[in-house]
Design a binder for these strands. Structure first.
Lengths: 338, 338
DNA sequence: CTGAAAGCGCTTACAG
DNA sequence: CTGAAAGCGCTTACAG
């Protein structure tokens, strides 16, 4: 019913092993036979049986990806990341097996034990990541997205959120802002100990301490009321610029500022940390530090492809793009006259 | 290095075939041996080799899912759907192989030819779906999410968007609204011929024709300016209620209405078509027709699990939840005094 | 209730 | 440059 390597061999008048070698390129084949074999493959529509191949070669050509499919994550970022992983994996002739975090460490053991994949990529890593021991003991390469507190022995990639936090402060300080506010991720993100939130905050604080800048910080729940309360607090402190590290509130933010009679960037500057397309989609195109999700996904695949990924933390430098939402503050003095 | 069925058999003092039968339950095993085998499996941490199992049994325990990983789809809906698929698949002891639409029909042929999966689920089906012929010729069960114009011979599941369109009109008409507007999906969605957009519109129009209701229709691009233009047009026609079938503009919608001095629902009613949690997240919780993505994903898996899924269109009835954003219109006459 | 053995479709030393 | 054959780790008739 389905075409096998024996069918192709028969059609091409060679042995099955020759067909196999044509496919793998692991030994030189005479021009003529190679062509006949390739022709037969094409004509018969032959695809090697994945199970048989995996069994014989101990390689599955499958990459396992553990993704957070919950609602409380940055959904577009996750999607772009997954897209980057699948695209790059296909470029390496690999497929992607999608796992949920629900299975926890056992899921990783199962995938490794069943020889379902050649490598595993784990998203949404927490600072105190509970899957670290399993990951280290796995007989296959693992790549983490995010940086746990103790990454020893594991390959990690991520945006350099520490540098991103500092870059945000730097950009605003150089424009002349002296009082800024960080509208941070949801309290739930901090509570979970998600690694990027803490790193961004650290970079932000360090840069604030280094410059003559005053800064307020507020986590912001992903709701309209949450945003409103957050702005009430923060704007009450007379800031002239907002750093928004929370994509969920990005949509309503500009309309809400407008409702308050604040023009961007004339009355207040806004600097976002989010995917580039999201920044461009706003009423006023936002200056932003890009979260290069698809690129990170591709990079993770590249690392996962090597038999032994370098057990070190690889951080992508942040790129800040100045768009229409940031400008020098209206007054030299940061505090509005009351 | 890795535990095989022979290791388990040796440890339990039985033959490999007995271990296999304990695992599959395909023949009765004496209480005692079963317990010894299960114990050995547990102690050794045995997981059957997926490739070997697939080769011997012609079943992979893998489901292929073709998902749209582009930016121009409803990202949260896709994520929830994928989550529903993975969760339900795991409940059936299956894993999910994630494919992009980029590969097109060839990707489906490849997966079937390589025996990578036992069934395939295809999301984001268009009215004139180009993958239909391949799907029909595939030697494995296929389930479509969405309803192409010619679904003959294929299993389809989706929300009944036609009924949803009608339900929206019905809800507003019963509240007393006589002039309503449909803020539709992005022009790109219509251009692609995505099946749900047309069906919703059909149901909407049919219900409008049946009732003493006047209706405006506008596709709405996923940008702030697009929304603004759309509202300019539609509000200019004196409508008292909005049906919003476009999650991308849901975030900025309420703030923008507020900016225009329109209170919801006092001055204007808003009825959304979107996932329930998204409706609840707004400044005013929105009355809505739920898009039950996760449930649809689960249903698709159930169908895909059967050797021959019923080749018919399965439509889930829409559920309209009345929240705070819909109310009777202020005046009995639909047109505001000018 | 259980075991010995064939066979699934490949890959890869081993031989020539 | 090519082929014959062993073997990967399971499942499942076939036997008893």
């Amino acid at each position: 019913m389905v075409v096998t390597i024996a069918d192709v061999a028969r059609a091409a008048g060679v042995s099955p092993s020759t067909v196999s070698y044509v496919l793998s390129g692991k030994r030189s084949i005479s021009e003529g036979t190679r062509r006949r074999v390739e022709r037969s493959i094409r004509e018969l529509g032959y695809h090697p049986n994945a199970g048989a191949r995996a069994l014989a070669s101990s390689r599955t050509n499958v990459l396992a990806l553990v993704a957070p499919l919950r609602a409380d994550v940055n959904v577009p970022v996750v999607m772009q990341f997954v897209g980057g992983v699948v695209t790059r994996a296909r470029a390496h002739d690999h497929d992607v097996l999608l796992l949920t975090e629900d299975e926890g460490p056992d899921g990783l053991r199962r995938v490794a034990g069943s020889a379902l994949a050649d490598a595993v990529i784990v998203m949404d890593v927490e600072a105190a990541e509970p899957r670290l021991p399993v990951l280290r003991s796995l007989p296959l390469p693992a790549v983490l997205i995010g940086v746990p507190d103790e990454p020893h022995g594991l390959a990690c990639v991520d945006l350099d959120f520490t540098a991103a936090g500092a870059a945000c402060v730097g950009h605003l300080a150089e424009l002349g802002h002296r009082a800024i506010a960080l509208v941070g991720p949801s309290p739930a993100v901090y509570a979970r100990g998600t690694s990027y939130a803490g790193r961004f905050l650290r970079g932000f604080r360090a840069a604030v301490a280094q410059r003559a800048v005053r800064a307020a910080e507020r986590p912001c729940p992903p709701s309209y009321d949450g945003l409103r309360a957050c702005l009430d607090d923060v704007l009450g402190q007379g800031v002239t610029a907002l750093v928004v590290h929370n994509e969920a509130v990005l949509g309503p933010l500009l309309p809400e500022l407008a409702r308050r009679g604040l023009r961007v960037p004339e009355d207040i500057s806004v600097l976002a940390v989010c995917p580039a397309d999201m920044a461009e989609f706003q009423a006023v195109p936002l200056s932003s530090v890009d979260i290069p999700s698809a690129e990170l996904g591709g990079l993770a695949v590249e690392l996962a492809m090597s038999a032994a990924p370098p057990a070190r933390v690889r951080l992508l430098p942040p790129r800040l793009t100045s768009r229409a939402s940031t400008a020098p503050p209206r007054t030299a003095t940061p505090l509005p006259s009351s």
